[in-house]
Amino acid sequence: MKGTTILCLLLFLAMLCIPFLAIGANLSGSLPDSPRVTDSGPPAELEKASFRIRDESTNEILTVGDRDFLYGAIVTEMAPSAEPEALKAQAVAAYTYYSRQRALAREQNADSDFSADPQNWKVYVSKEQMQERWGESFQEYYDKLTEVIDCIAGQTLQSDGELIDATYFAISSGKTESSEDVWGGKLDYLVPVASPGDLFASGYQTTASFSAEEFRTAIQEKAPDADFSGDPSTWVGEAACTNSGSVKQITIGGQPVDGDDVRSAFGLRSSNFTLACADSIFTFTVRGYGHGVGMSQTGAQFMAQQGSDYQEILAWYYPNTTLVSV
């Protein structure tokens, strides 16, 4: 009896470890080579550059140095308690994304590079806001961020000599999306990759339910010609999905409705959903959180916990790119 119990326990532990072993095999065997860091300028250049950020609440233009921006941008996307290598990956992705936004804005002679909402911790926050939120933990977290930034300052991801569109999001469905499927533009560095660590996230799967009247009202704003006659169970038809599972289009009331429009109509966390109707109640089962393109922040944290460094994380989520120090 004792031997049987031990055997069952060992089998359970083996099953639990299978997903971790799988990603471990990927990271050691099929993970793309870490992007080579190419030096094209001294790190001191980072101290001279700045971003012009429009505050969405006040309409004021904030001038923020590149290094200061990194502090404020990292913590609007990841908790400072996250793994250092995940924070480094997030820092490089954010700096690349917003450096690209800056370059595009200045080509167009715009009066600001991009907008942010510091009041609501969106895109960028100040050091003073961090102090207010973190209290006694401020110095510990700020010192940790300083170590992260010292390591990656000035590094960007590039493809064919150009800054990439380094998009990121919270949680995938277990596989990221291609930019072509979500936004229509094909980029060889924004392609589907496995992100199995996301399945362990507490917010990986969510549900949302609506009455027939709530469902009809929400959809009519997106598809005013939809026909809602007959039993509610007949209102929803077939769905066309991406390779990674997000709904591209779904038939509702006889009309095709974009998956993103359904997501926004019902406030869903992603477009990767299934929809069921029972007793005139419509229930969405949603996987992941965000648009799904680029780096999964939850996946980056999982990879860091498994021993991957930031270069390996970036190579995994942004294949066919080069890490360049500017």
Results as ranks from 00 to 15, higher is better:
42 P>D: 15
42 P>C: 09
45 E>M: 15
51 F>L: 07
55 D>I: 14
58 T>K: 00
58 T>C: 02
59 N>T: 13
59 N>C: 00
61 I>T: 12
61 I>D: 06
63 T>Y: 00
67 R>Y: 00
67 R>G: 00
68 D>W: 01
73 A>E: 04
76 T>M: 04
77 E>L: 01
78 M>R: 14
80 P>Q: 09
80 P>D: 10
81 S>T: 15
82 A>V: 00
82 A>I: 00
85 E>F: 02
85 E>K: 04
86 A>P: 03
89 A>Q: 07
89 A>I: 09
89 A>W: 04
90 Q>Y: 06
90 Q>H: 04
91 A>R: 02
94 A>M: 14
94 A>F: 05
95 Y>K: 07
95 Y>T: 01
98 Y>G: 03
100 R>G: 09
103 A>H: 12
104 L>V: 11
108 Q>V: 07
109 N>E: 15
109 N>P: 00
110 A>P: 00
110 A>G: 13
111 D>E: 11
112 S>I: 05
113 D>W: 02
115 S>V: 01
118 P>L: 05
118 P>H: 08
121 W>Q: 07
121 W>V: 10
122 K>C: 14
124 Y>V: 10
127 K>N: 10
130 M>F: 02
136 E>R: 09
140 E>H: 01
141 Y>T: 01
143 D>R: 06
143 D>V: 11
144 K>P: 03
144 K>I: 04
144 K>A: 08
146 T>W: 05
147 E>S: 13
147 E>A: 15
149 I>R: 06
149 I>W: 04
149 I>S: 07
149 I>Q: 06
150 D>G: 02
150 D>P: 01
150 D>C: 03
152 I>M: 04
153 A>M: 12
154 G>R: 03
154 G>M: 06
155 Q>S: 09
155 Q>C: 13
156 T>C: 03
157 L>C: 04
159 S>P: 03
160 D>K: 15
162 E>H: 14
163 L>I: 03
164 I>H: 09
165 D>F: 06
167 T>Q: 13
167 T>E: 11
169 F>G: 03
170 A>T: 14
170 A>V: 12
171 I>Y: 08
171 I>R: 10
172 S>G: 03
173 S>C: 12
175 K>V: 14
175 K>A: 10
